[in-house]
Amino acid sequence: MNAEKQNKEAVIRVENLSAHFGKRIILREVSFQAFSNEITVILGRSGCGKTTLLKHLIGLYPVRQGRVEVMNFSLAGIEEDDYHQFALRIGVLFQNGALLNSLTVAENVAIPLEQNTHLPASIIDYLVRLKLHLVELENAADLYPTQLSGGMRKRAALARAIALDPPILFADEPSAGLDPVTLSALDELFLRLKHGLGMTILLVTHEVPSILRLADRVVFLDEGRVLYAGPLTGALESDIEPIKEFFRRELSLRSLKGSSSLQSRK
C-alpha cells in the first residue's frame, strides 16, 4: 500500500564496516540495519565518522573491509554499470549543497529529470516547480546558487535530491545553518516524503529536536564505533554514558540558561 508498508525489510545492511585514512582509523567494525519506510538518524559528536559512514553508504568511498548492502546492491567492489543503476535510485543531499554554480536553481533541479528520464518538458517543468514548492523556494527558481543564502542553498539541494522520488534519501546535516521555522518545515517535508511516497530516509544530524521529531531508529556513533543501533525510544532510555550525555545536553543547557538569567537579575 502507499501509506503503510507493514512488512519492514532491511534496505540498508552494514556489517563490520571498517575504514581508515592512512593510519587514522575512522570506522571500527560498524554494523547496523535501516528499514524501509523509516527514518534512520546517524548521530554522534563532530568527528565521530558520521559523514565518512554516509559516504560509504552512497558508494563514494570504496568499501575495503566489511560489507555494505543498499537495496540489494552490494557496494564492495561494485561495477560501474551497477553503480549507475544504484545512483539512479538514491537521492543525496550533501553537507554544503553541491549545487552547480553555473546553473540556476530550477536548472539544477531539472538535471536528474532531463538526464535520466524521457519525460516531456511540460511534466519536467511541473515537477521542478513542484519540488521547489515543496522546499518553499518557488520564488528563487531563476536565481543562481551564489545568490542564495546558506539555508536556501541547502533546500535547493534537497529539491534536487528528491527530483526523481528516490526510494532512499540520504541527507548529510540537512539542519545545519537553518532557522527554526525553516527547520521544522524541513522536518515536516521529510515526514511527508516518508508517509506519502514511502521513502526511506537516512539522516546525519545532531539537532536533538529534529531527532526527537523524526527518528524511528537511531545509530549512535562514538569514535568510529556503534554504541547503539535501534529504535529511538531505546536510545532515550539508554544507560550508555555518551548517549545519555548527548540527549541530556539539551535539558542541562536549558537549566544553565535559567540560572544565569537569575544571577543577572540579582
Partner: peptide
C-alpha cells in the same frame, strides 16, 4: 495502488 510525484504531475497536466 501507488502514486509518486511524477504520477501526480501527470494527472495534473492531463489537459495538455
Amino acid at each position: 495502488e501507488y502514486l509518486d510525484s511524477v504520477g501526480v504531475a501527470f494527472l495534473n497536466l492531463l489537459r495538455v
